[in-house]
Amino acid sequence: MNDETANTGEPIAEKDEARHAMKMAKKKTARDKIMATKTDEKGLIIVHTGKGKGKSTAGFGMIFRHIAHGMPCAVVQFIKGAMHTGERDLIEKHFGEICQFHTLGEGFTWETQDRARDIAMAAKAWEKAKELIRDERNSMVLLDEINIALRYDYIDVAEVVSFLKEEKPHMTHVVLTGRNAKEDLIEIADLVTEMELVKHPFRSGIKGQKGVEF
């Protein structure tokens, strides 16, 4: 008997394949059993937060899924200013009939240096957000960088939480992005993802680049 056969004379590779197939079959049976219990549907409150890159990108990924499925949706940008981004240009140029896009911020707080104006713009963005969420034709509404506005108390987190709990239509998904999400918001969310920063090119002197950051 050589090294490539087991005691039964069966090649080791074949035994490994059979063992793997049996293991995966057991996993599939267990997973199918779990999935059979997941029958409910509801509009989710989704939070993307953390210091790592990808929060807005993940939100836009969901928006593009909605667009691909022909499901009406909307975006409200709370902080980002007038600079066009790839997502905004693509949506406004090709998908404006299915996805409304509103940029109601004027840039990051260190750029505007005007707290009163920032508060006024955030309030305007929040009013637009409520209007879009209330419209049950929208399957998803992305509130991009709203967590920044909440962090600086430009908007009252208690009002946002109350609105999402009491007025959000049952089947409407709402995605809220930005670092430092407040605990009150995390508590009512159905899905929370924290992006963890491991490495970032900015620390090596590399500026934000088209197709990556915007």
Rank of each mutant, 00 (worst) to 15 (best):
L132R: 03
G61H: 10
L164S: 07
K38F: 13
D16A: 13
D156Y: 01
A149K: 06
E187C: 05
A158C: 00
T85M: 09
A123Q: 15
C73G: 07
M62V: 08
F101I: 11
D114Y: 03
I186V: 13
F64P: 01
I79F: 13
G9S: 09
Q209Y: 09
K27D: 08
M62K: 10
V160D: 06
S56I: 05
T103Q: 14
E10L: 01
G81T: 12
L90H: 14
M195T: 11
A158D: 08
A123P: 02
F214A: 10
E111C: 05
T109K: 05
K53E: 05
D114E: 00
V75M: 09
I46P: 11
E166N: 15
L197S: 07
A58V: 14
A149N: 08
E111A: 10
Y154A: 09
F163Q: 08
V141Y: 04
T8S: 15
N147W: 06
T177Q: 04
I46D: 01
C99M: 10
E145P: 02
N138D: 03
H94N: 09
W110T: 14
P11G: 11
M83H: 14
F78C: 09
T193Q: 00
I155G: 02
R88H: 06
E159S: 07
I119A: 13
E183C: 03
L104M: 15
K124Y: 00
G208A: 15
M71Q: 13
